[in-house]
């Protein structure tokens, strides 16, 4: 194990955060059946990417910032946001992180360093570079973590921003969570590197920055790669592109439907579109959350009793989040017009 390996206590923390994201999102998913109509619009789950999210954020320091996409429930939970406020936001309630004005796709918690989320694919990448320029000017060795998906790497915003970030040596780490699919399009169908059998991290070469591909289902591997990139950024040596390979265990999002049609999560596109149940079942067998728990137990870091205790604590925490969010009132109608201008 490298010097970057977190100690036993920290590994348990990593596992706990992974389980918190998973359980929180299971409760989001269950809301569609338990409380139909409570969640509106479109939600996107990070199940399968928990190891990548937590491994990436495990070296986050006060003053650092993270920005992400519409698939954004996991990051703020790791950074310290209250799951009650996160769930209330997804339910459109006044006690939500964004007072019910943003919803599932726009969770933001500035007090905990979660600066913003764009629902437009790739659009948030330059925002992270801008925050990194701010950090560079302040000169306090702060870094910005920029999360996006593999699909975003085909946007102009990706190429334009990585070029400038490298040119200006911005303290930014670009974490591309490659879940293999842009909705129902496979990487090989839309990405020249993927079609040629190359890792997507090879794109870094075009921008003269390091590019690393890592197994995003292994939190310690992600931690090692991202913390090295973060250290490089803090030292003023510029950005890194990390391709973190994950598998999205749910469909892209809940069904898109007009009012009156009950929303729900369909099966994964590997099954519904490509008829490839074998691929999906293999991914389920590699589910990073139970796998990491197993590794910790096997290594003597976690006892089965301790693991069960964590599970029941997290279950209770997320049940409380659901209960709180259901009871939270809707925002006042006046607040609909309140925040267009500062």
């Amino acid at each position: 194990m490298s010097v970057n390996t977190p100690n036993a206590e920290r590994q348990i923390w990593i596992y706990t955060q992974m389980l918190r994201i998973r359980t929180f999102e299971e409760r989001v998913k269950r809301t569609f059946t338990d409380h139909p109509g409570v969640i509106r619009g479109h939600t996107h789950l990070a199940d399968g990417a928990e190891a990548s999210i937590v491994g990436s954020l495990s070296g986050f320091k006060k003053g650092d910032a993270a920005l992400a996409t519409y698939r954004c429930h996991g990051y703020p939970l790791v950074l310290g946001s209250d799951p009650k406020a996160a769930m209330a936001e997804i339910y459109g309630r006044v006690d939500g992180l964004c007072k019910g004005l943003g919803g599932s796709m726009h969770l933001t918690d500035v007090a905990h360093g979660f600066l913003g989320t764009s629902g437009i694919v790739g659009a948030g990448i330059p925002h992270a570079a801008g925050a990194a320029w701010a950090a560079q000017i302040r000169g306090k060795e702060e870094v910005v973590l920029c999360f996006f998906g593999d699909g975003a790497s085909k946007q102009g915003a990706f190429a334009e921003t990585l070029n400038i970030a490298s040119l200006w040596k911005l303290p930014c780490v670009f974490v591309m969570e490659n879940n293999g699919y842009n909705v129902v399009t496979t990487s090989a169908q839309e990405d020249a590197n993927a079609a040629a059998g190359e890792p997507l991290s090879i794109k870094a070469k075009a921008f003269a920055m390091p590019g690393v591909t890592v197994d995003g289902t292994d939190p310690l591997a992600v931690h090692a790669v991202v913390s090295e990139a973060v250290a490089r950024a803090r030292a003023g040596h510029g950005p890194t592109l990390v391709e973190s390979k994950v598998y999205r265990l749910s469909a892209h999002g809940n069904i898109i439907a007009p009012p009156g049609v009950p929303l729900h999560y369909p099966e994964h596109e590997a099954i519904t579109v490509f008829g490839n149940s074998a691929e999906y079942e293999a991914a389920l067998r590699g589910d990073p959350v139970p796998r990491f728990r197993g590794i910790l137990v096997q290594n003597g870091i976690l006892t089965p009793e301790h693991a069960a205790k964590i599970t029941s604590e997290v279950d209770a925490e997320m049940q409380a989040a659901v209960d709180f969010a259901l009871k939270s009132p809707f925002p006042t109608l006046e607040s609909a017009l309140q925040y267009n201008y500062a």
Binding site: C98, G102, V110, L115, G116, Y339
Partner: peptide, 8 residues
């Protein structure tokens, strides 16, 4: 600013 409920 709007989507963040006035946080930024």
């Amino acid at each position: 600013r709007y989507m963040s409920g006035g946080q930024v």
